[in-house]
Design a protein around this nucleic acid. Structure first.
Length: 803
RNA sequence: GCCCGGGUGGCGGAAUUGGUGAUACGCGAUGGCCUCAAAAGCCAUUGUCCCUAGUGGACAUGUGGGUUCGAGUCCCACCCCGGGUACCA
């Protein structure tokens, strides 16, 4: 037998057992155990896994193992979010097909995940780029289209005039194309959208039905951003166009002295096509959201030379385009009330527009409440009271209506890119947009020569593929050349895991209803909004169409913090990605996994440093050594003296501590620390404690460390008991071992500690105060002062207040 | 800008519901044992400052206020760092 801890023999040994016995596979046949679906967000395969992946799957695997040993039937699958921009960029640079680089990366992810010993049911694995998968992504798209939840409209995109291509936000640096440095322009393109705003209220309300971290719930609520107010119509008489605006302050309508459009507003150039306006719009659109929103930035804008009618005063008020108005909120245009809105006020001063007070609320600009003035027949009425009256009046005159506005916008899903799921529609001169019939799915992604063709989506260059026939009339038609946002792929993959080989449907409803919802979802907090919101939307839409019996995909969510590198997010573009491989190679998977969890609370960010991994390795090594030595030791050790040994008590304390840390709290760092304490005590007390207690303590340490260091946990447990730890139920602490008869009573003077004295654990308040008064140190500190009050916290302390 | 987090020793962090000398556990550092030596391992010390060196004192949880018998924990204001901000995923 080896004389030192050697993960390179232990880890492959157990991995072989689990692979040969298919230990982590589960069928879709229910049994008597309750099901638990434990899922980590699927990785985007680019290069090799980084340290953040190690953390995600170390967390998820700990949960999966814990749940299994608590008697649950655990589904724990794995897949790859394989479409995406980085593989495409790589292809543009190198000419290597994105499929090749992606599949090479997937192979590397698989290799490392297996080496980490993650307890995955590999029979359910897939990549979202496989036709067997994206066939069903397309199928779902078509169902959403049929239901009116997918539609086309014009939207602004960022455009590089030099590369003649649409740019992702990430590809725009300081208003310039990241690749060629050309100044970025804005173009309006017809784009596909999902009508997620139809679900705004349900997405908001159903947050109450799921157990998510409160801050994530808050982020989603704020993102959806429901606010009540009114929609009011301002008419441009010259063009004969009505422009609705949303306002939360219809009570200030009489003070609307100008009208402002967002630079993205599709009608801006229709109102004024001058070079000045074009230049302003382009500049504004290339500013980051952060710059545009800044309160400190001087207000900029351009007068459009047009007017609209204020519907309550009948006045013609000037129109502007200005970057402080955001297309994403409301209708992309606002009525500006400079007297009662700070940003409108600044703009009015800068552009010399009249400012008219309509609420007596203090010095201008003021946003408070007060009686109305300059408001026709509403003069003298308090603004809160006038608010509903003005809305009613607008409604009766057809000039406006009560309205609820959401900050949430519809989901723009089309991408003018190659490496994504093709959108399964064709365009026919006669029949317009025609869905590809289900029996012709998948619309396969064709191979192309050039991943960055000029001017169009790269797919447009695949002429043979683009020209097709109309499914309705059989005449020549052209395929949609946009692909889908990768968030579409990842909005339903958790359903496919339930039934991954189904070739009749994306999933069988009965099977999905058995496994869903995901009981514990785990992933980075950076996905708190987009991915999680989109997946919730998909599940609701699928449920509405009868394909699914749940309303929410993820019953419980755990968001882990990111592992930072020198205080920065790790990303390929920053070139600061750390590979877990060096740690795994040097210390083994058990050490690497335990160490990322030991670094700190997993829901918080942690700065990566490899220093300290050695400490965790030393701990695992000490545990292995103790187990090996105890296994060889035939002696009985110290005789039992009738009292449970301190070591036995410590073992029960550790069971209790680790269990509480893992249940919901996910405090793996302190759970591991508790096992470290137990192992330290084994070393301290193994000479003095009964041999049975030593063995129990070591077996317990192996059992408790198993969710984090499964190979070593299995090895140690087998050495001590001959049993397989994963087949054993999670240990339970004996309550009798957790309590003591005596406590150390803390004596405080004005909240400062002066003494600790032993006291019976069950002593009453009166007894505790009596004991505390007897403290010699207290008497010495009192110095003749009078005790005016004593605060007794039973079982803990007595605090004397003196004057 | 807006939304959401975070800030505790030389370092990562602990303190779970306002109640034990705040700093568990680990790293690092220092000293010792073992060894021909090194590695590994084991043992001990380790918040800062002060002094009369003790069973001593003062100060310490980003900054400034506040509530409380008692605050790392609650409230107010501010500073700094991270994430998200809709085409990175």
């Amino acid at each position: 037998m080896a004389d030192r801890y050697d993960p390179t023999t232990i880890e492959p040994k157990w991995q072989r057992v689990w692979a040969e016995e298919h230990t982590w596979e589960v069928s879709n046949e229910a049994d008597e155990r309750p099901k638990a679906y434990v899922l980590e967000m699927l990785p985007y395969p680019s290069g090799e896994p980084h340290i953040g992946h190690l953390k995600t799957y170390a967390v998820g695997d700990a949960v999966a193992h814990f749940q299994r040993r608590r008697g649950q039937r655990v589904l724990h699958p794995m897949g790859y979010d394989a479409f995406g921009l980085p593989a495409e960029n790589h292809a543009i640079r190198t000419g290597q097909h994105p499929r090749e680089s992606t599949e090479a990366s997937i192979a590397e992810f698989q290799r490392q995940f297996r080496r980490w010993g993650i307890s995955i049911d590999w029979t359910r694995e897939f990549g979202t780029h496989q036709p067997e998968y994206y066939r069903w992504t397309q199928w779902i798209f078509l169902r959403l289209l049929e239901r009116g939840l997918a539609y086309r409209k014009e939207a602004a995109v960022k455009w590089c005039p030099n590369d003649a291509t649409v740019l992702a936000n990430e590809q725009v640096v300081d208003g310039r194309c990241e690749r060629c440095g050309a100044e970025v322009e804005v173009r309006q393109l017809e784009q596909w959208f999902f009508r997620i705003t139809d679900y705004a209220d349900r997405l908001l309300d159903d947050l109450e039905t799921i157990e998510w971290p409160p801050h994530v719930v808050r982020m989603q609520q704020n993102w959806i951003g429901r606010s009540e107010g009114a929609e009011v119509t301002f008419r441009c008489e010259e063009l004969g166009v009505d422009y609705p605006v949303f306002t939360t302050r219809p009570d200030t309508l009489f003070g609307a002295t100008f009208f402002v459009m967002a630079p993205e507003h599709p009608d801006v150039f229709r109102l004024n096509d001058s070079p000045e306006v074009h230049e302003y719009v382009n500049r504004a659109l290339n500013e980051s959201v952060e710059e545009r929103g800044s309160e400190h930035k001087p207000k900029t804008g351009v007068a459009l030379g047009r007017t609209v009618t204020n519907p309550v005063t009948g006045e013609q008020i000037p129109m502007f385009v200005a970057d402080y108005v955001l297309m994403e909120y409301g209708t992309g245009a606002i009525m500006a009330v400079p007297a009662h809105d700070e940003r409108d006020f600044e703009f009015a001063k800068a552009f010399d527009v009249p400012i008219r007070r309509v609420v007596e609320c203090g010095e201008l600009p003021c946003t408070g409440d007060g009686p109305l003035v300059n408001s026709g027949r509403f003069d003298g009425i308090h603004n809160r009271e006038a608010y509903p009256q003005i809305i009613e009046w607008l409604e009766s005159d057809g000039l406006g209506k009560r309205s609820i506005n959401y900050r949430l916008r519809d989901w723009l899903l089309s991408r003018q890119r190659y490496w994504g799921c093709p959108i399964p529609v064709v365009y026919c001169d006669e029949h317009g947009i025609v869905p590809v019939p289900d029996d012709q799915l998948p619309v396969a992604l064709p191979d192309v020569e050039d991943y960055a063709p000029k001017g169009k989506s790269p797919l447009a260059a695949a002429e043979d593929w683009v020209s097709t026939t109309c499914p309705v009339c059989g005449k020549p038609a052209r395929r949609e050349t946009d692909t889908m946002d990768t968030f579409v792929d990842s909005s339903w993959y958790f359903l496919r895991y339930c039934d991954p080989h189904n070739d009749q449907a994306p999933f069988d409803r009965e099977v999905a209803d058995y496994w869903m919802p995901v009981d514990q979802y785990i992933g980075g907090v950076e996905h708190a909004i987009l991915h999680l919101l989109y997946a919730r939307f998909f599940v609701k839409a699928l449920a509405d169409m009868g394909y699914l019996g749940v309303q929410e995909p993820f019953a419980r969510l755990f968001t882990q913090g990111m592992i930072l590198r020198d205080g920065d997010k790790m990303s390929k573009s920053k070139g600061n990605v750390v590979s877990p491989q060096s740690v795994v190679e040097r210390y083994g998977a058990d050490t690497a996994r335990s160490y990322v969890l030991f670094l700190g609370p997993p829901n918080q960010d942690a700065d990566w440093s490899e220093e300290g991994a050695g400490g965790v390795h030393r701990f695992l090594s000490r545990l292995w050594t103790a187990a090996t030595q105890a296994a060889a030791d035939e002696s009985a050790g110290a005789p039992p003296d009738g009292q449970p040994s301190a070591l036995l008590r410590k073992a029960h304390w550790a069971i209790d501590k680790v269990t509480r840390d893992m249940e919901g709290r996910f405090a793996f760092n302190t759970a591991i620390a508790a096992v470290m304490e137990l192992v330290n005590d084994v070393y301290r007390e193994r000479e003095s404690a009964p041999q049975a207690d030593v063995r129990f303590a070591i077996a317990t340490a192996g059992s408790l460390i198993f969710p984090f260091a499964p190979h070593l946990g299995a090895e140690v447990y087998e050495l001590m008991t001959g049993d397989r730890v994963w087949e054993q139920p999670w240990p339970e602490a004996d309550p009798a071992m957790l309590t003591t008869d005596e406590i150390q009573l803390v004596v405080q003077l004005n909240g400062k500690l002066v003494d600790r004295i032993p006291a019976p654990a069950e002593a009453s308040r009166e007894q505790l105060e009596e004991i505390a008064r007897g403290s010699g140190k207290l008497a010495a500190r009192l110095n003749g002062k009078q005790i005016v009050k004593a605060v007794v916290v039973p079982g803990k302390l007595v605090n004397f207040v003196v004057k």
